[in-house]
Every structure is written in structure tokens, then in C-alpha cells.
């Protein structure tokens, strides 16, 4: 049990490794974004291009598209590490696994969630959202997408050892996403009526804090089951 590095060094090393891997394979970052954009394009084509209608359903579209596109990246979260054996080494090491997992989830959010938040103004333009609603959308995505990463990582940890884990993972994870979806879309809807939506944001923030504290523990026990 020799620990040569501080916890912070461990955290940043794991985070940096994952980010580097992602930036060398840019498709991993770009593909979920493209998927997000295409899903959003499909809706006006399917229901008609009337601006009022689009603005009305835009929060729902953006959020459902965000849920689906984060699901795409989740499958990759632990799979490569699982196949090349480094996951086993991380579990066997003397450093706390929840911390390692936290670092991986944070890196995953920076790769998949953050670009989504940054691209939102463009999507809002496509869907005819006004400035008020745009700010609300960005804020809810900022609080909500890390939450999605944390919840989704539990499902990813449980299914990483399985051959066809991808579709099963979406079955496990999507029901757990529902509260996030409800509070986020309700915040945006409230903002379109120019009302105060800080309550919904506070609840999203509270859920995020709980997720940061408890999800890494659940993820690490899930990973231990998958690797053993």
C-alpha cells in the first residue's frame, strides 16, 4: 500500500489521459454532436416548420436529443479500459476507486456534455427560441448534463462486461433520467413565460450534488462486479 501520488495527482492524471485519448480520436467528440444536430433537424421536418410551434416544443426536443446523444458516448466510457485491462489495474491499485471513477466521469462530461452546452445557442436559433429561453436552456444543460453523465456511468459500469451492453444500458438508464428531464424542461418552459425559474435550477443543482457524492460509490461497486 504505497501511495506515491496525492489524490489530486491521481484525479488529474486519469482525467488527462481520457481527454488526450478523446482528442486524438476526434470522431468521439464530433459524432454525438452531429447526432444531436440531426435529431433536432428531424423534428421540424416531421411536424412542420411553423415558428410558434417549434418554439413551444423546443425545450423538449433539445432535452430529449441531449439524453439520446449522451447515451451514445456512455458505452465507450469504460469499455476500452475494460478490454485492455487497465480497468482491472485501476481497481487493484491502492488508490480509492470512487475517485478514479469520478475523474473518468468528469472527463466524459468535458468530452460529451460541455460541447453540447456550448453548441446550444446554434440549436436555439434553429428552433426559434428567444433569449430568455436560451439562457435557461444553457443553464439547465450546464447543471443537467453532468447529472446525466453520473447516472449513465452507473449503467455503463453494470453493463461493461457484457457482449451487447449498449442497448441494455439505455434500458437501465433512461428511466433514471426522467426527473432530470422533467425539471429541466419545466425550467425552460417557465422562462418562456418570463417567470422565475431558480427553483427548478436549485433542484437540479441539489440532484447534481447528491450524484457527485453517491454515484461514484455505486459506479465503483458496479465495476467491481463487472470485472470480477
Amino acid at each position: 500500500m504505497i501511495r506515491q501520488h496525492s489524490y489530486w495527482q491521481l484525479f488529474s492524471a486519469v482525467c488527462k489521459k481520457d481527454l488526450q485519448l478523446a482528442f486524438r480520436q476526434r470522431a468521439e467528440i464530433v459524432n454525438p454532436l452531429l447526432f444531436f444536430l440531426i435529431v433536432i433537424t428531424l423534428f421540424p421536418l416531421a411536424i412542420g416548420p411553423e415558428p410558434g410551434l417549434l418554439a413551444r416544443i423546443a425545450p423538449g426536443i433539445i432535452w430529449v436529443a441531449a439524453l439520446l446523444s449522451t447515451m451514445l458516448g456512455l458505452d465507450k466510457l469504460f469499455r476500452d479500459d475494460y478490454h485492455d485491462g487497465s480497468l482491472e489495474q485501476l481497481i487493484a491499485s491502492s488508490y480509492p476507486l470512487p475517485l478514479t471513477v469520478l475523474a473518468k466521469v468528469v472527463a466524459h462530461w468535458i468530452i460529451t456534455g460541455l460541447p453540447l452546452v456550448l453548441m446550444t445557442p446554434l440549436f436555439a436559433l434553429l428552433l426559434n427560441l428567444d433569449t430568455n429561453a436560451l439562457i435557461a436552456t444553457v443553464l439547465t444543460l450546464l447543471l443537467g448534463t453532468p447529472l446525466l453523465s453520473f447516472i449513465g456511468a452507473i449503467g455503463a459500469g453494470l453493463t461493461v462486461g457484457l457482449q451487447k451492453g449498449g442497448i441494455l444500458m439505455s434500458l437501465l438508464v433512461l428511466p433514471l433520467y426522467i426527473p432530470v428531464l422533467i425539471f429541466a424542461t419545466s425550467a425552460i418552459e417557465t422562462s418562456t413565460m418570463s417567470l422565475d425559474y431558480s427553483g427548478q435550477l436549485a433542484i437540479l443543482g441539489a440532484m447534481l450534488v447528491v450524484a457527485i457524492l453517491s454515484a461514484p460509490i455505486a459506479i465503483s461497486s458496479a465495476l467491481k462486479v463487472s470485472v470480477s
Binding site: I154, L158, L172, P175, L176, I178, P179, I182, F183, M207, S214, A218, S221, A222, V225
Partner: peptide, 17 residues
């Protein structure tokens, strides 16, 4: 593990809905 994660989420889902 999934059952426990679910039971923590269940009240949140219930009240949000």
C-alpha cells in the same frame, strides 16, 4: 446494485412526476 440505485431514485421520480 441496480435495485438499490432504483430505490434511491424512486422517490425523486415519484415527486417530480
Amino acid at each position: 446494485i441496480l435495485a438499490i440505485v432504483g430505490v434511491i431514485n424512486l422517490p425523486i421520480i415519484h415527486f417530480s412526476v
